[in-house]
Amino acid sequence: MGLNHINLVVKEVDQAVSLFADYFGFSLITNRNSKMAVLERSHQFVLVIWGQELNRKDEIPEYPENFHIGFYQEDEGAVREIYNRLKEVEGLKLDSEPKKIRNTFGFYFYFEKLMIEISVNPFKENIA
């Protein structure tokens, strides 16, 4: 059994679509009036961007403490490269430059109040 999709709630659907398409390799399947969008990555994973407006609330949604999503990069150079690209994106909050975190190398940033981790896969050598 595989993970089919994840649903992320955001205030700005179009900005989230751009972030995931431009920086994380997702392709847009549909955007329903900037209120909900469906993206796909490598025909293996679907990401649903659900607009907070559909919840009939105006504020940016809160996620539980330490909730985040993560994207693995091949190596430290790739982590630095995406960090440098993301530094230029208006509206993102980058906590710090890439550095050693736990058993890997990476950084965290925020889109609205959603925490996103970019790091080198610390388990790569153990994956057969």
Rank of each mutant, 00 (worst) to 15 (best):
V9G: 04
I82Y: 13
V89E: 03
N4V: 01
L39F: 02
I118H: 09
D58E: 15
N126S: 11
I29K: 14
N55P: 02
S42W: 08
D22K: 08
P61V: 11
G2F: 10
G25Y: 00
Y72K: 03
E76V: 04
G25P: 01
L86C: 10
F107V: 04
T104C: 04
I101Q: 01
F20C: 03
K35C: 11
V120D: 06
G77P: 01
V38I: 14
Y72H: 06
E112A: 05
E81V: 13
E74W: 12
H68A: 03
A16M: 00
S18F: 11
K99Y: 14
L8Q: 07
W50L: 15
R41T: 05
N121L: 10
K93W: 10
E88Q: 08
D22V: 08
A21S: 14
I116G: 03
Y63E: 07
G91K: 00
V9S: 03
M1W: 05
Q44C: 11
H68F: 08
S34V: 08
R41V: 09
A128T: 12
S34N: 02
N126C: 12
W50S: 03
V89G: 05
F24Y: 08
V9D: 03
R85G: 10
E125K: 13
V17D: 01
S34H: 06
S96R: 14
N66W: 04
L54H: 02
K35Q: 15
D14W: 04
F107I: 03
S42A: 13
L47K: 05
F26V: 05
V38Y: 14
R102E: 14
R56P: 09
D22H: 11
E88F: 13
L92M: 02
M1V: 11
F109A: 06
I127N: 11
E65M: 09
I6T: 02
F45H: 02
V48N: 02
P98Q: 10
Y110V: 05
V46E: 01
W50Q: 10
P98D: 06
L86V: 07
T104R: 05
I127A: 07
F24M: 02
E76H: 00
L94S: 02
G2R: 12
L94T: 01
M115K: 10
D14A: 11
N55G: 07
K93C: 12
V17A: 00
V48L: 04
I127H: 14
G91A: 01
R32C: 13
E90H: 07
E12F: 07
F123A: 11
N66P: 15
E53R: 10
Q73G: 03
I49C: 03
I69Q: 02
I127M: 12
E88D: 10
E90V: 08
Y108F: 06
L19A: 04
K124P: 09
M115F: 03
E59M: 12
R85L: 07
R41G: 05
S42I: 12
I118K: 05
N7W: 06
Q44K: 13
Q44P: 15
I29A: 13
G25W: 04
F45D: 00
P61C: 09
P98S: 05
R41M: 11
A78K: 08
W50Y: 10
A16F: 00
K11F: 02
N126G: 12
I118W: 00
G77T: 15
K124Y: 15
